[in-house]
Nucleic acid binder design. Structure first.
Length: 894
RNA sequence: GCGGGCGUGGCGGAAUUGGUAGACGCAAGCGACUUAAAAUCGCUUGGGCUUGUCCCGUGCCGGUUCGAGUCCGGCCGCCCGCACCA
């Protein structure tokens, strides 16, 4: 039996596409453009099938849009600066540049094996001075525009990578790559003013309607805009006052203490005259170096003896403590404590025996019974048992509670107490209560509304060698001097050693010593390099004109940008995607380009997961060494029983990586592509399995046999449409297939437009089944057999491009399928003349009936009531009502 | 704790957005071809029994509706993001 020779075919067509320049992109203002981009890889070594999913998804979009007549830009490049190159240099004594170049070579070859429709003429590598020279210029422009600045700051220090991390790169107190506990260090660093764009970046999320909701939310949360108030408390017996920040000023009436950060100015002042307090502050500092320590540390406080006067309740004085959990970095470094509405404050109040008040409780309910009568939710009622009622002088009748913060769902049961709200008044929402308190504060001159962001400026300095040098010079006389444009690029020295830890640029004997461009005196280069997210924040724009000696050819970026469809992993939901959105705005401000949003559409693809096994000692075992029998996993070598772990993302350490070459060698690129595209929707995880790849391979061969060795006669290439078929008077089987064909064209197009690739494959398989089952003879049948096959080949083109080209040739064409237009569905063939209508009795299916399309209601009703099954179900009961949904359903209500 | 998402056969997943639940595939079983195996082809495959175009069935309980996998309310479970952030 004939088998598809993928090896020969894939090599041939890859060669043919390259030779014909099939995927070269040229700006053409007369044609609609489509820019599809997959997140470019870091050249870390070798690709496995997990990486390929990303590129296969993009390739389907690119090939489909090309066939639809778009002028498609589909480039690929390398995110080539980064730490692994330096680690390899240390481990293998190979220069990072060499290591990177070799990986690019190998991975480039691997990519070419998969038949991706890239315009390879536009390939870029970010470690190329011809690339990074432009970002050095950008940085100088950012400096001039006030978007880049240098400051002494407490930064996140990764002790394993020996470098600084941006806030976004710290996950659960650990470095995002190294996993090491992050420390705080005071360093002078370069920052980009992303916070200037906080509001804009947040507001523009609304316009990103082709982004996943999940990512939009994550970005909005990361920016973290919140409205609160600055509130001034007069300090008893002093002239000055204490300013605190709160996002919940509505809880001010339940404040029972104030707390200062150990780093607060007032704390320092008080500690100067109070050795016990000074000791407490020192203790806090000893503990609070790493994020981990902060998370686990117990709440500690120190009563300063100071008293703060409540802004509204003149006779209420709140004790002022110093507390280790108050952060100087956030807000004003001082808070008012509200134990009734905040778990953390409650912990603190319990420990130091401070009062607990509920600002939202109905003033009439003083006992559990009363609370029940007032309609308090059960969860809140329970608190009354634990914390008996107390009254705080001057606050009227209030509750002591011991509970977590409130949510809006609780609110209707409570009354907000702001003097003018009497029991029985309509309760205020949290938002309204906030505004009311803020207005009252402002009227008293005791505070004001404030907007806060969680977002911090982006620290871009890294103490690494393998990155883009920051183009500034430090001169003792002239301070920070930008490297003059004529001296760009500042390139990396190649003669470096990694034998001692730290930044090799800093230790290099000559590189950093230069004359000050300003005064000519002795000066030193900045030895920090940029965060590698700097390069990936503009590469998509560079692809528009990769050879330009300016950063961008203006006409080219104006034509191609924004990226119409961007495809990559969810792990970049905030990091890369937020930086890029900011960067493009900064570039616009500096006159580089005109767009504001880099990526109009975003698809976040799931991971490729694979089975994992561990032996009794907990070591991972390669799945190839495992055999399954009676539901047990057995190691082939020694028969040991293994534990089957969960299906996890492919990683070397878990020994579940499926190499690309092996799969391509055994089954071909198209088989791998088919499995990656068909088994799960793109945004969900996909399970790689031997059975799956076998199934895909079977189908590829079925297609091969269907076309290369058809059963039944095919009309000649280009034979005209027979008259009988054109007028739809052919036999029923032919008409059915013809309709199937056009419905599939329409359906697959819709699926591709919505990235439902798995559904598209299912439809194509259904069509394959129909073509295989089609047996009639005669001119019409012969023509249809050919027509159906030609269409089928066009439909699989974006998914399995090599096979499609090969089959196209088998069908007698000497053109390339890559140049063929997408088939068009005939709208007349998409609607059936007869439709199957479900008949229900009281909502339960009792029969199906065939009706002419758009049959009138009366006819449908009559036909439905005629059904035996319907009569049986009615069992003589009178029909009360009949609901007819045309062409779909008849429901008889009895 | 806050925010979000998801629960459908043995498995991956479909379901025209409120209208015939389980498309398509994987796995399994039976059969055909074969000396045999592989490959290929055909059939069966949610559960139940009284085998009827019957009953039950989309995490659980309730509601709206002629009709709910889909909408609403309340639970349970899993996943993700954020977090001593005031």
């Amino acid at each position: 039996m004939s088998r598809y020779n993928f090896k020969e075919s894939e090599a041939r067509w890859q060669g043919a596409w390259a030779e014909h320049g099939s995927f070269r992109a040229v700006e053409d203002p007369k044609r609609p453009k489509y820019y599809v981009l997959e997140m470019f890889p870091y050249p870390s070594g070798r690709l496995h099938v997990g990486h390929v999913r990303n590129y296969a998804l993009g390739d389907v979009v690119a090939r489909y849009k090309r066939a639809k007549g778009f002028n498609v830009l589909h480039p690929m490049g390398w995110d080539a600066f980064g730490l692994p190159a330096e680690n390899a240099a240390i481990a293998n004594k190979v220069h990072p540049a060499e290591w990177t170049a070799e990986n690019i070579r190998v991975m480039g070859e691997q990519l070419r094996l998969i038949g991706l429709s890239y315009d390879w003429d536009r390939e870029i590598a970010t470690c190329d001075p011809e690339y990074y020279r432009h970002e050095q210029k950008m940085f100088l422009d950012f400096m001039a525009a006030g978007l880049a600045y240098r400051k002494e700051a407490r930064v996140n220090w990764d002790p394993v990578e020996n470098t600084v991390l941006a806030n976004e790169q710290v996950i659960d107190g650990r470095g995002w790559r190294s996993g090491a506990l992050v420390e705080k260090r005071l360093l002078s660093q370069w920052f980009l003013r992303i916070t200037d764009y906080a509001d804009e970046l947040l507001a523009a999320i609304d316009g990103l309607d082709r982004w996943p909701e999940r990512v939009r939310l994550m970005q909005a949360n990361w920016i973290g805009r919140s409205i609160g108030a600055h509130i001034r408390f007069d300090l008893v017996g002093r002239d000055d006052n204490l300013e605190v920040f709160s996002t919940r000023p509505d809880t001010l009436f339940a404040a029972t203490f104030c707390a200062l950060s150990p780093d607060h100015q007032l704390t320092e002042e008080l500690a100067a005259g109070n050795p016990a307090l000074a000791e407490f502050v020192a203790e806090c500092r000893r503990l609070g170096t790493s994020e981990e320590a902060i998370e686990t540390a117990e709440k500690q406080g120190f009563d300063t003896g100071l008293r703060a006067r409540h802004p509204f309740l003149a006779d209420v004085e709140l004790p002022v403590h110093v507390a280790n959990f108050v952060l100087m970095e956030y807000g004003t470094g001082a808070i008012f404590g509200c134990p009734g509405h905040d778990q953390r404050d409650l912990d603190f109040a319990r420990k130091y025996d401070l009062p607990v008040i509920d600002a939202l409780a109905p003033p009439t309910a003083r006992t559990l019974d009363e609370a029940e009568a007032a309609g308090l939710p059960a969860a809140d009622r329970a608190r009354f048992d634990v914390h008996p009622l107390q009254t705080l002088d001057g606050m009227g009748e209030v509750f002591h509670i011991g509970a977590t913060a409130y949510t809006d769902t609780h609110l209707p049961a409570y009354r907000y107490r702001l003097g003018d709200l009497a029991p029985g008044d309509t309760p205020l929402s949290t938002a309204d209560a906030k505004h009311k308190v803020i207005a009252a504060l402002e009227a008293k001159g005791a505070g004001a509304a404030t907007v806060r962001y969680r977002l911090r400026d982006w620290g871009v300095s890294r103490q690494r060698y393998w990155g883009c040098p920051i183009p500034v010079i430090h001169c003792r006389k002239c301070d920070v001097v930008p490297v003059p444009e004529r001296d760009l690029p500042v390139t990396l020295p190649t003669d470096i050693d990694f034998d001692t830890p730290g930044n090799p640029l800093d230790r290099h004997p000559s590189w950093k010593h230069v004359a000050c461009p300003n005064c000519g005196g002795p000066a030193e280069r900045e030895t920090d390099t940029f965060d590698t997210f700097f390069e990936s924040s503009w590469y998509f724009a560079r692809f528009c004109s990769p050879d330009s000696d300016k950063a961008f050819d203006r006409a080219a970026v104006d034509y191609w940008l924004p990226v119409d469809q961007y495809i990559g992993g969810i792990e970049h939901a905030v990091l890369h995607l937020l930086y890029s959105r900011f960067f493009v705005r900064a570039l616009k401000k500096c006159g580089y380009l005109s767009v504001e949003e880099p990526f109009a559409g975003l698809l976040t693809q799931g991971m490729v997961v694979h089975e994992t096994y561990r032996d009794a000692t907990g070591d991972w075992v390669y799945p190839e060494e495992v055999e399954l029998c009676d539901g047990k996993a057995i190691r082939l070598a020694d028969g040991a029983v293994l534990t089957a772990g969960r299906h996890e993302k492919m990683s070397k350490s878990k020994k579940n990586v499926v190499g690309l070459e092996k799969v391509v060698d055994s089954y071909g690129a198209d088989t791998a592509r088919l499995l990656l595209l068909s088994d799960s929707p793109p945004d969900r995880d996909l399970e790689w399995s031997d059975a799956g790849i076998e199934g895909a391979w079977r189908y590829i061969n079925r297609l091969w046999r269907l076309i290369a060795a058809p059963k039944g006669k095919l009309a000649a290439t280009g034979a005209p449409l027979p008259e009988a078929l054109a007028t739809l008077r052919a036999d029923a089987a032919a008409v059915a297939l013809w309709r199937d064909l056009h419905k599939t064209i329409a359906g697959v197009g819709e699926d591709f437009d919505r990235f439902h690739f798995n559904r598209a494959v299912a439809r194509i398989r259904e069509l394959t089944n129909a073509i295989e089952a089609f047996e009639p003879a005669g001119d019409i049948a012969d023509w249809l057999r050919r027509s159906a096959r030609e269409t089928l080949v066009k439909l699989i083109g974006p998914l399995m491009p090599h096979l499609a080209e090969e089959l196209w040739r088998q069908l007698g064409h000497d053109t390339m399928l890559a140049d063929a237009p997408w088939p068009e569905a005939d709208p007349a063939l998409l609607v059936d003349e007869t439709v199957t209508v479900a008949v229900q009795v009281n909502g339960k299916l009792r029969a199906t009936i065939a009706l002419p399309r758009d049959a009138d209601r009366a006819a449908a009703e009559r036909a439905a009531l005629d059904q035996d099954g319907v009569q049986r179900a009615l069992d003589g009961k009178p029909v009360r009502k009949v609901i007819v949904v045309p062409n779909r359903i008849v429901n008889v209500v009895a």
